[in-house]
């Protein structure tokens, strides 16, 4: 026998369930007075640099029905393409932008809206620039392990065309599932959990 690698196993995931709001956005579901505000509810302030944009995201199940009990977190770089993170070694990100947001889908409409800024480009592992993108993490009742994907921008055609992650998609017809459509200052993005238009989810 060889020596043991002495590695632990990651804790297995369990669904966030139907009451995820109690833990992550208590004010949203009527539990006031415990936290002053829900974490991740506001992403920008007056001093944040960059182009203000809105995101309107829906999550749809295999029948095309909009989920009304999902929760989405987003993570993105600042306007210069820098992450506000200790892992960012290239420079200091905008101190007025954390780059992280959290939003439950509306209990009636299923709509998830973020007010944020358009991120700059971030380098891929080999130094080539990736197209501007926002990382999404989606949890809900019925989702056993949080889903990871990206939102790219419809008005970044040239950057999208040279993006090393999008380039890895064998089935080119699936590329549009990752691209949000610009409508004035807002990008509209539907996440399809199943079906012909199933969003490309990541294992990374």
């Amino acid at each position: 026998m060889a020596q043991s690698l002495d590695r632990l196993k990651e804790s297995p995931s369990q669904t966030a369930g139907p009451y995820v709001h109690i833990g992550l956005t208590p004010n949203f579901c009527g539990i006031g007075g415990v936290y002053a505000t829900d974490l991740g509810a506001t992403m920008v302030n007056d001093k944040t640099r960059g182009e203000r944009i809105g995101l309107r995201i829906r999550v749809l199940d295999g029948t095309g029905t909009t989920l009304k009990d999902a929760l989405i977190e987003i993570w993105q770089a600042d306007a210069d393409g820098l992450y506000n993170s200790p892992a960012e070694m290239r420079g200091a990100a905008d101190p007025n932008f954390l780059g992280w947001g959290r939003c439950p889908t509306d209990m009636e409409t299923g709509l998830c809206t973020f007010e944020t800024i358009k991120p700059g480009r971030v380098p891929f592992r080999d130094g080539r620039l990736m197209a501007p993108h926002i990382t999404l993490w989606i949890v809900a009742r019925g989702i056993n392990l949080g889903l990871h994907t990206r939102l790219y921008f419809s008005d970044e055609e040239k950057a999208n065309a040279e993006d090393p992650i999008l380039a890895r998609l064998e089935h080119r017809v699936r590329v549009p599932t990752l691209i949000a459509e610009r409508k004035s200052d807002t990008y509209v993005f539907d996440v399809h959990l199943q079906g012909e238009k199933e969003t490309v989810f990541f294992d990374s």
Binding site: G62, T63, L67, Q194, V200
Partner: peptide
Amino acid sequence: ILRSPQKALLAF
């Protein structure tokens, strides 16, 4: 059943 992706994940 209706909330589980069915296609292969993109690994990188």
